[in-house]
Simulated scan of single mutants.
Amino acid sequence: MYDFDDEGPMHVLHPEQSWDFLRAREFGRLAFHLVGDVHITPINYAVDTDNRIIFMTSEGSKLFGVTANRDVAFEVDEVVDERATSVIIRGRATILEGQDRYIIEQLPIRPWVASPKSVVVAIEVDEISGRSFDLSRPWLHDIPRQ
């Protein structure tokens, strides 16, 4: 899946590999500040043509948090067979209003929970980093097969 320049069990993803990884998925975790604490919550998302993370939400702590302090982090990870991949973004959340909010009509955002979400949020990315790990997990090979 990836072409790595490094050797060993940990591989640094090139930025475009990290973006490809994010584009191929739709579920991640948003970390945000809320009244002096850091919170983390799952979200469905899509990546737009400007390499922003777009998600929808409703009134509540998540919206209050990203409005009160725009600095956020976002993470998507995956473990498949003997490989784990993780991409982390740091950036700033912005509520999209007016014509800007119609970006969702061009994206495959599919809410997993049937609750009303009318607020569109974009994460403007300041930093992206991705890693892939070759897993050994020897304990999996010690499990007796039935």
Rank of each mutant, 00 (worst) to 15 (best):
L140D: 08
I43T: 02
I89V: 13
V72T: 07
V76I: 12
F32P: 01
T94F: 01
L34V: 04
E82G: 14
D48H: 05
I43V: 06
V113N: 06
A68L: 07
L96D: 07
L135I: 12
F27T: 04
G98L: 04
R52P: 03
I128L: 15
R83S: 09
T57D: 00
D50W: 12
V38A: 15
Q146K: 15
I95D: 03
M10H: 09
Q106P: 03
A24R: 13
E105H: 13
D6P: 06
Y2D: 13
I109G: 01
N69Q: 15
L13C: 13
H11Q: 15
V87P: 06
H33W: 13
D50H: 15
D71T: 12
D48T: 08
R110T: 10
I40G: 02
S118A: 11
S136D: 12
R29G: 07
P15T: 09
L13W: 08
H141A: 13
F27P: 00
Q17Y: 12
D6C: 12
R29V: 06
Y2E: 15
R92N: 15
G28D: 08
V125N: 10
I88S: 14
D142F: 04
H141P: 07
H39Y: 11
V38P: 03
R83G: 03
A84W: 12
E75G: 02
S18I: 02
D81M: 02
L22H: 03
A46M: 01
S132T: 15
P111C: 03
V47M: 06
V12M: 15
W139H: 15
N69C: 11
F21S: 09
I43N: 03
D5H: 13
P116K: 02
V121R: 05
P108L: 00
E127C: 07
N69K: 07
Y2P: 05
G8R: 05
R23I: 04
G8K: 11
I40V: 13
G91L: 07
P111K: 06
I123N: 04
E59K: 09
I128T: 11
R52A: 04
L34I: 05
E26M: 02
Q17P: 01
H14N: 02
R131E: 11
L22Q: 00
D134V: 11
I128M: 11
A46N: 01
P144H: 10
F27N: 03
V79G: 00
P15C: 12
W112N: 00
D5R: 14
D20N: 10
R145I: 08
D77R: 04
P111E: 07
S115G: 05
V12Q: 15
P111W: 00
G91V: 01
Q146W: 12
S118R: 14
V80K: 03
I43W: 03
S136V: 15
P111Y: 08
F64A: 10
L13P: 05
L140C: 09
V72I: 05
W112Q: 08
V47W: 06
E124D: 12
N44I: 03
H141L: 06
V47T: 04
L63I: 03
K62W: 00
D142W: 04
K62N: 00
S129K: 14
H141V: 02
W112L: 08
Y102F: 13
M10W: 13
S115A: 07
W19N: 09
A84R: 10
R70N: 11
D71N: 14
M56N: 02
R145N: 12
P108K: 08
D134F: 10
D77H: 11
P138V: 09
L135T: 14
